[in-house]
């Protein structure tokens, strides 16, 4: 593994409730280099909160603490809001789950992608337009000239997701966080969107944090996997060795997925009392 891009030590995210504070991320530590790391877990396991806290997107009353949260030589915990704005997009960017809710409905696609670039650097308009075109081609949009002038409601979900990827990658960040980037998409376009992310990440030598609830998908796509349960990392392994995972939670998750060639009469269900989280 190369020198870590991102270094997280003892990260905690807490929200106050009427019953007292609830810790949704409970002291997790990991490092990400220029590699593909998958974070897997069920809803409520804290995987998305981990992704958001790296970009410092958790708002008050939620609080984030850590012994260390560094991106290269920048300390994310103490950076000013202005510094954070320079980091978001330029150095770390995030692809969200659903393009329907993440794209601006009243801006054309070309203008939105261009904005992601001009926020961070001054460029002549022609150059911006050219870069946007190249980026649209890179995410395999066949007719960039036409798509440039369309609004988000005029494109399909799969195309919307590719537009979002284009927008996130145009400032050429060091680290991409993809939070369930394909779960709102059809199986038929899922493979293509993953392929595009994979190509661009490898070509530009970026780091990738891939957040998903789908263990098998993550194991095909990433180098390393962190399994989260109830705010903690319960297991870490190389993606290729997922089959040898030992934690009962990981094994339970793996077993509960139906297969294309299914012969079991009943699917095994997670028995949550089989293990305990301290």
């Amino acid at each position: 593994m190369s020198a870590p891009l991102l270094d997280v030590q003892n990260l905690r995210v807490t929200f106050p409730t009427l019953q007292g504070p609830v810790e949704v991320v409970r002291g997790i530590s990991f490092q990400v280099g220029r590699e593909r790391v998958g974070i897997v877990g069920e809803s409520g396991s804290g995987k998305s909160m981990t992704g958001r806290s790296i970009l410092r997107l958790i708002r008050s009353p939620g609080t984030v603490t850590a012994d260390r949260l560094r991106l290269g030589d920048t300390d994310i915990l103490t950076a000013s809001d202005r510094d954070m704005r320079a980091i978001r997009g330029r150095r770390i960017s995030m692809v969200m789950q659903d393009p329907k809710f993440s794209l601006n409905p009243v801006m054309t696609i070309g203008a939105q992608i261009g904005e992601a670039l001009t926020v961070h650097q001054k460029l002549p308009r022609q150059a911006v337009r050219r870069r946007v075109h190249e980026m649209l081609e890179a995410v395999r949009i066949r007719d960039p000239e036409r798509v440039f002038g369309l609004y988000p409601h005029e494109v399909s979900g799969g195309m919307g997701q590719r537009v979002m990827i284009a927008m996130m990658l145009i400032p050429e960040p060091d680290l991409l966080i993809a939070d369930e980037p394909t779960s709102a998409l059809d199986v038929s376009v899922r493979a293509q969107v993953l392929q595009i992310i994979d190509d661009l990440v490898t070509r530009k030598g970026m780091g990738l944090i891939f957040i998903s609830h789908d263990l098998n998908l993550v194991s095909r796509f990433c180098d390393r996997i962190l399994v989260m349960y109830a705010g903690e990392i319960v297991e870490q392994c190389r993606a290729s060795e997922l089959g040898k995972a030992t934690h009962p939670y990981t094994r339970g998750l793996l077993a509960s997925v139906p297969r294309l060639n299914e012969t079991r009469a009943e699917l095994p269900v997670l028995d949550r009392s089989a293990w305990s989280v301290a």
Partner: peptide
Amino acid sequence: ELIEKSALTTSA
């Protein structure tokens, strides 16, 4: 084709 695409992204 649909089965192939499905096999790429779901479990085998």
